[in-house]
């Protein structure tokens, strides 16, 4: 047996060999810090690819049913609250903007800026969820949540709903077609719900990142977690940027 092997060779001793690579976050199994960083962001991109496939299943279902039940999808889509959706779009883009600034702050090692940016990202993220709550509440009141309480009244008799001008102007749907709005709303809740779930997970991670950023973990040159989280957060933004036009805008008429 080679002598090099028989000498005890512990973890710690091994880590010592790489002492010139100074960061405490450097994992011993990576040769260089560069390699670690590249691996991290490559892994994140792959994970996002997975996420695309995950949402892809629902987008596929959406396209299929939209094709089949176009009038129901148009009517139901027009019932969605565009001002709220638009507000949320702006909120989410702002949140993404602050996240990007956060990544920058981490790169230039400004601890205070980083913490503030992450806080702002969190606040805007929460604001998005808040608006979403009111939207869901509205759907609940209108019995647009799929299930036993679902009601097609608004689509069969839009003339009874003068307080909803977009719907009021719609042509009434035949009851058989109006039933299909349930599928739209199911997909709406499934897609925006899954998106919201991603936001909630993201906010949880943000809190953790803020605590660590406050400790100064990410302003000493170790930016990978912030960068990778930034990728995730932007991905969540981008999903919304597909959801908003597909669910809310696609059937809007020009202003009456």
């Amino acid at each position: 047996m080679d002598s090099a092997l028989t000498t005890p060779h512990t973890h710690e001793a091994h880590a010592h060999e790489h002492e010139h690579i100074s960061l405490p976050q450097h994992r011993h199994h990576f040769e260089t810090e560069e390699q670690q960083r590249e691996a991290g962001s490559f892994g994140m991109w792959l994970f996002l690819l997975t996420e695309i496939m995950f949402f892809g299943g629902m987008f596929f279902a959406y396209l299929l049913y939209r094709n089949w039940y176009y009038p129901a999808f148009a009517a139901a889509s027009n019932q969605l609250n565009v001002p709220m959706g638009a507000t949320n779009t702006v909120i989410l883009i702002s949140s993404g903007f602050f996240m990007a600034l956060g990544v920058w702050a981490s790169e230039v090692r400004k601890k205070k800026t980083l913490v503030i940016m992450l806080l702002l990202t969190t606040i805007f993220g929460c604001a998005f969820l808040g608006v979403k709550y009111f939207e869901y509440k509205e759907k609940y009141e209108l019995h647009h949540i799929p299930g036993n309480n679902f009601s097609i009244a608004m689509f069969v008799n839009p003339q009874n709903y003068p307080q909803y001008p977009d719907t009021y102007a719609e042509k009434p749907l035949a009851p058989d077609m109006a039933q299909k709005t349930q599928i739209f709303f199911f997909l709406y809740f499934a897609m925006t719900g899954m998106h919201a779930l991603h936001m909630i997970i993201g906010i949880g991670l943000l809190v953790w990142l803020i605590i660590r950023a406050q400790r100064g973990d990410f302003t000493n040159g170790y930016v990978a977690p912030i960068e990778n989280f930034g990728l995730y957060w932007h991905f969540v933004d981008i999903v919304w940027l597909f959801l908003f036009p597909l669910l809310y805008l696609i059937n809007r008429h020009p202003l009456h």
Binding site: Y65, Y69, P146, G147, N148, Q179, K180, I183, F186, L187
Partner: peptide, 12 residues
């Protein structure tokens, strides 16, 4: 929830 995204009687 019992909605019919795969249920033919509800248009799924």
């Amino acid at each position: 929830i019992g909605i019919g995204v795969f249920d033919p009687t509800k248009g799924g």
